[in-house]
């Protein structure tokens, strides 16, 4: 394949005199170094989260007395309190509906955008790509966007809300870049075999760029999941609220009660964490199976 040829060429150009064998000891030192760096970063990353969990299990007086002490007993009252105070199941369902449907619409439209742009199969590909690149820089246009949605009758309407999340210039850029790594010869070969455009994109390109799609979909879904400003503006009916609204209740009511707030935060991030832990195997390990090999 094209990319293999290229990369082999680079290696050939840089051929260096062979230094015979690596010693075992050197490798081990390398490993220790790797682990040292990874563990230092793990502490920076896990520390704040552990602090959150620890706090959520304490009572308020305990926290006031000593913020850092490790909790002595498992006090789940904060979780009960948080769960009772917010309508989490309903909000959670809404958030999942918004996230899944907007991501699906986005991915489907994005692939049909990114492929011909990347390949130059439509007139003005470069202009279209520049348009999307410019969109990366565009200022947030809250007010004009709101007026538009209002006139289209999409205010306080889940469909309108979902539509707001069906574009993502960053996602398009990633897909375009990724498709570039897939050799053009493939298109030619498929066409010679009598494969149509739609079938080629859905049957061959889709699976080939699965890793990029997974990455883009997750990044996109995270943005929808965490959106706080748009639901405040576009959704006024309680039945439509996403889960980020549940968080607002907590910041307002429990602003200074760190233990309960911590419990609410944990409840709120739990579903996304689980989904992520489940998906990340697919995103990252899926890559190893080899996007290039198909």
């Amino acid at each position: 394949m094209n990319i293999n040829k290229q990369t082999k060429l680079i290696v050939d150009l840089d051929k260096k005199p062979q230094s015979v064998m690596k010693t075992r000891g050197k490798i081990n030192w390398g490993k220790i170094g790797i682990y040292a760096v990874l563990i230092i970063f793990a502490i920076i990353y896990a520390g704040p989260l552990l602090m959150l969990i620890n706090t959520s299990l304490k009572s308020l007086p305990e926290f006031m007395k000593s913020a850092t002490s490790v909790t002595t007993k498992l006090n789940f009252d904060n979780f009960v309190d948080a769960w009772e105070k917010a309508n989490f199941p309903r909000y959670l369902t809404n958030t999942i509906i918004y996230t899944v449907s907007a991501t699906l619409v986005f991915i489907v439209t994005a692939v049909f955008l990114a492929f011909p742009i990347s390949r130059g199969y439509v007139k003005g590909s470069k202009i279209i790509l520049s348009l999307f690149l410019i969109a990366l820089f565009l200022p947030p246009a809250l007010i004009p966007q709101f007026q538009l949605m209002l006139r289209l009758g999409l205010y306080n309407n889940p469909i309108g809300y979902i539509l707001l999340f069906t574009i993502n210039p960053i996602g398009i850029t990633i897909l375009v870049n990724y498709i570039k790594t897939i050799p053009r010869e493939l298109d030619e070969a498929a066409a010679l075999d009598g494969c149509g455009y739609f079938r080629f994109v859905t049957k061959i390109i889709f699976p080939l760029i699965r890793p990029a799609i997974a990455t883009v979909a997750v990044l996109h879904a995270i943005g929808i999941w965490n959106e706080l400003i748009l639901p405040t503006i576009y959704l006024t009916n309680k039945d439509y609220y996403p889960i980020t609204r549940g968080m607002i209740v907590f910041q307002g009511v429990y602003g200074s009660n760190w233990p309960t707030l911590a419990a609410a935060v944990l409840i709120m991030i739990m579903p996304m964490l689980i989904i992520f832990l489940f998906l990340q195997r697919y995103i990252i390990s899926g890559l190893t199976q080899g996007a290039v090999k198909g």
Partner: peptide
């Protein structure tokens, strides 16, 4: 799935 989700959301609206 997409169609179903959109339709149900539509009905709700």
């Amino acid at each position: 799935m997409l169609v179903v989700v959109l339709l149900s959301a539509c009905a709700g609206g």
